[in-house]
Structures are given as C-alpha cells and as structure tokens.
Simulated assay, not measured.
Amino acid sequence: MSGFIKLHRKIQDHWIYQEKRKFSRYEAWLDMIMMANHKPNKFLHGNELVEVERGQFVTSELKLMDRWDWGKNKLRLFLDLLEKDGMIIKKTDRKRTTITICNYGHYHESETKDGPQPDHERTNRGPSADTNKNEKNDKNDKEVIKDIFAFWNSLGIIKHRELTQKIKSKINARLEKMSPEEITESMKNYQTVLNGDLYWWSHKFTLEKFMEPKNIDQFLTDNNPFENFRKQKGGGNGGKYGANYAGTSEASRKAANRGAETFVGTPGREHGGVSVEELRKIASDFE
C-alpha cells in the first residue's frame, strides 16, 4: 500500500479524539503534526506578538504533559528522541517552547501535486534565526530571576534583603532544566508542608539552599511531597523520608540559618498563584 490519506485537523474536536486518556507515542506524534500551523501565522502571547512559520507551533511542557497525560521525564525523553531522529526542532526559552516539524511537506501538501514533497528548505536551514535572541534572553533571564527571588520573599519562609550573586547562580542553574512555574510550584508546596499541621517537616531552608537540586526536587508535585512528609496517625514521622529525616535537630536548623547572611525574619503566610504574570506583580511590590 502506498500514498497517503487526508486527515482533517478538525478530528481533534471530535468526541472520540477528546476522550481523556494517556496518549501513546504515535498519538502524541500525530497530535503534534495536527497542532502545527499549515501557513505562517501571528498571535498575541501576553503582551508580545509572536510569529510562527509553516510547520511550527508554540506550546509549553506543562501543556503537553496535561494534554497527553504524561509525566515530565517521559515528555522530555520523547521530545529528545524526536530531535535526535531529525523529526522536530525544539526551541525553548523562559516563556514558551516552539516546535518545528521537520519535512512538514510530507504530512501536509496540496492534492494538486503528485504527492507530498520533502520540505528541503525547512530541514536545511531550520527555523528562522532570531538575531536578537541572546540579547532578549539575557534580559528575560534577569527579570525571571528577580521575580523568583521576590516570590520566595513573599512566602515569608526566610526573607533575604539582597539578591546575591550566589542566589542568582543557583536560580539560573535550576532554570536550565525547570520552568519558572515548576520552581514556584515547588516553593509553594514547601511552604504548605512547612506550615501545615499535617506534616512533620520543620527545617527552614535559605533560598540558596532550597535551590539545590536535591532540595527543590523533593517538593515538586510530581514527587508527592504531601504524602512523603505526612505525619503518621498517632504521632511520629511517616512518609517516604521519615526514616532519614526523623526530626531535624536544632543544631542543623541553626547551621542552615547561618547561611542566610541577609535573614530578616520568618513570618508565615499563605500565597496563591504562580504564573509569570503574577510573579511580575509580586516583584513590583519589592522594588
């Protein structure tokens, strides 16, 4: 059997396609092809006008994870596999992920031609170059780091007067593999566990210490912090880390706090919202 069939992207609106399920890799690949723009397009992303080319679409890891019912590791391994096989080109910055389907002409071509033609131009040159990419990313990185710093202070765990170079370096290192939303999600979960009566964890990190991979990772929602640090019925430490962290000593808490040269207090309060836009509002309160 040779040739191709026409599959209209409106199939995505059909109740059969919209059934809630965990996507297979084939379904995810087909979904990506249908999400790609069939012609150049522009759309408003926040306050920024974004241009996408034919065969491209803009998304985020969180959106794809929710759409396909996948975990973060499975998604990243899948996208890496597609890139290595020359099937996609992925560009990620602090705001969004842009995916280009290589040889898009294989999957979407006019009927008037003798069949789909390879999109050689796309494969050879990749997505259009952003001549201001480095300049824009440097500016965005600095702003995002400031916003994350302000968000941490707003949680009232251990406040810092100054955004030191060490703190900047730690935040920047985490941003290499995590989105701002993932970082603030982990911070919020940590605050909930620290202040909640249902949980045994009592150790207060400085921001610099919290940004170490082993600390921030254990409070990500995917790693079940609300179960791992839950108290056992009848008292005592329970959860995954109960045996290893059975009661943080007063000496260790003091040692951690000595690392916060700019410590100014530890009031507790709840906080909601983790979007980049909300981070901007929080950051403005600290300027």
Rank of each mutant, 00 (worst) to 15 (best):
S249I: 05
V58C: 11
F286W: 14
I167Y: 11
N37S: 14
E185N: 09
E109W: 15
G3S: 08
K204P: 08
K240Y: 12
R76Y: 06
I89Y: 03
G268R: 15
W70Y: 10
G55H: 03
N47G: 13
N37A: 14
N244E: 11
I5Y: 11
N228I: 05
I282Y: 02
N132V: 12
E135R: 13
D197R: 07
R25D: 11
H108G: 00
I148K: 00
G242W: 00
G268S: 15
I183H: 01
L81V: 06
S24E: 01
A283Y: 02
E27I: 05
M178R: 06
I88A: 03
K146A: 12
S110I: 07
G236W: 01
D66I: 08
D141W: 03
E270R: 12
R96N: 08
E208D: 12
S284L: 10
D69M: 14
L155Q: 04
K233N: 10
L163I: 06
K10F: 14
C102F: 06
N237M: 11
K136Y: 09
A283R: 12
T221P: 01
Q218S: 07
N189L: 03
K168S: 05
D285I: 10
V193N: 06
D141G: 03
V274A: 08
T192E: 09
V144R: 02
P40E: 05
A36C: 04
E250M: 06
W15F: 13
I148Y: 01
K136M: 10
L175C: 03
E61H: 11
E261P: 01
K233W: 10
Q117H: 09
E181Y: 09
F151N: 04
E182W: 00
Q218W: 06
A256Y: 08
K63F: 09
K136R: 15
K95N: 09
K168E: 11
I171Y: 03
Q18C: 08
D147R: 15
E121K: 14
D114W: 10
E51N: 12
K136F: 10
N244L: 14
M34E: 05
R9G: 03
K166S: 14
V276H: 01
E27V: 02
E208H: 04
T92P: 00
K74W: 11
K20L: 10
Q232C: 08
T100C: 03
H14I: 02
W201C: 09
D85P: 00
E135Q: 15
N224P: 01
L77R: 13
I33F: 01
K146Q: 14
R9T: 04
I145S: 00
F4P: 01
F4H: 14
F205Y: 13
L279M: 14
W70H: 09
K233I: 12
K10W: 12
R76W: 08
G272C: 02
S2G: 15
F57A: 04
T262C: 07
M178F: 06
D285W: 09
S202L: 07
G272Q: 07
N228V: 01
W200N: 00
F219V: 00
E287R: 10
S2A: 07
S179K: 07
L77V: 05
E111V: 09
S60W: 04
H271E: 09
W201I: 02
K168N: 04
A251P: 00
N73H: 11
Y241V: 01
I99M: 02
T98L: 09
